[in-house]
Design a protein around this nucleic acid. Structure first.
Lengths: 224, 224
DNA sequence: AGGCTGAATATTGGATCCAATCAACAGTCG
DNA sequence: CGACTGTTGATTGGATCCAATATTCAGCCT
């Protein structure tokens, strides 16, 4: 039953279980995939997962369906699910999409950001400086960005942006491992908060675009 | 067992069934939701659906999960699924997202479009002129747009764009009913094809942006 | 030896059954 | 009369069992 990944330990580490088993399995798997704990291409056997999470195969199947709809794994009828591959092309597309969407969200959000929002953003930048564990940086980074877009007033747009940031997490891992955390451009982050605090929309948007562009450029080559 | 919608007739009308029952139920439901056949807010009872499609409740559950992940319906644990609401806000967001993403796809695609792609796009415009049934116009319109973006070389971006166009279908219905089909801006469509044929990227992008902007403006007010 | 065929096995898809949860309603008590 | 509570019915969540499909591998034929 060795998949090369310790699902049992993951399950134990997941904190309190959500109300339904489906939800539980879904979250655990999602996290493991995004963290890179389960490498791309890994086939996921329903029976093995069920045993590891100590549930029946049914909630596993529902979770797999949801993850498939999120493009985190690929399904083939009667063959099963494998963790979706990552690729330079996919990474480039993620940046392309972020580059198109996030400036819109940021521009709409800036005028409506409260002092609390800005403080929270600043706190998150500081948290990133402190956080020792690479695995948590993705989430902090995501929350930082989302806190700046929070007041855009376009829920559907925000859901989409968050989804892209989640996808981005899968690649951020590689960056941090290869380039080190100093490449996370904390200066860009701080500059974005400053621009937002001054309600300077064009400047904020420009900072954000530069931020995404440099990240995109730096990670363009060195990939699988 | 009256949901106010004839699932049995839908099932019969669906053409050949895909290999798995889940897939079958998924497609049928998805289509019915997008067509507006099942109005927003309608609760979907698993038992009723299973009976209508003549399968057990299990494939129904899997289909519902997938549709939930696509935001076409909302799930509440132990309560069930209801068809996602549509709203002016959601519609505006859809246009916002399209306006941000499609120009990128179009710009990347134009230089690589083949004669066949352009012919296909033109054919689809003509098909729209001919098509008598409102229900099919959404699909034709979607395929028209996608054929112009097809050579963008960014699969992930294209998937996302297509998804937005699918969402757009839900609203297009209302437009056609209230404003009539002459508002579909076939002239814009033709202008986009011309610009693409001339490999004029800035002009094509501008046409597209205007197209989306006018559609957005025209449909801004008159909503539920 | 190599490739094809077919049986055996593993794995997923689907159905049925049971348990947990929620909603509605009746009854009771203040 | 109103609010609370316990009970019943409806509906979803989860488990187990069976069927369908794919994969593997042994054996046979060329």
């Amino acid at each position: 039953m060795e998949d090369g990944f310790d699902f049992v330990a993951l399950a134990a580490r997941m904190g309190e279980r959500p109300r339904t088993a489906s939800e539980f399995v879904y979250r655990a798997l999602r996290r493991a995939i995004l963290d890179g704990g389960i490498p791309p291409g890994t086939p996921l056997r329903q029976e093995a997962l069920a045993a590891a999470f100590d549930v029946s195969r049914m909630p596993v199947r529902e979770a797999l369906r949801q993850l498939e709809a999120e493009a985190l794994l690929e399904f083939t009828p009667h063959k099963g699910a494998v963790v979706a591959e990552i690729s330079a092309r996919d990474q480039a597309d993620t940046y392309l999409i972020r580059r198109a969407l996030e400036p819109v969200a940021f521009a709409q959000s800036i005028p409506n950001l409260t002092r609390e929002d800005l403080d929270r953003a600043e706190d998150l930048v500081a948290d990133m400086d402190r956080e020792p564990e690479h695995g948590r940086l993705g989430e902090l980074n995501r929350r930082f960005h989302m806190s700046l877009y929070a007041r855009a007033g376009s829920p559907k747009l925000l859901r989409l942006v968050e989804r892209q940031l989640v996808e981005h997490d899968r690649y951020l891992r590689f960056h941090l491992a290869k380039l080190g955390r100093d490449r996370m451009s904390q200066e860009d982050h701080r500059a974005m908060v400053r621009a937002a605090a001054e309600r300077d929309v064009p400047k904020g948007v420009e900072m954000l675009q530069r931020h995404i562009d440099t990240a995109s450029r730096e990670s363009a080559d060195f990939f699988p």
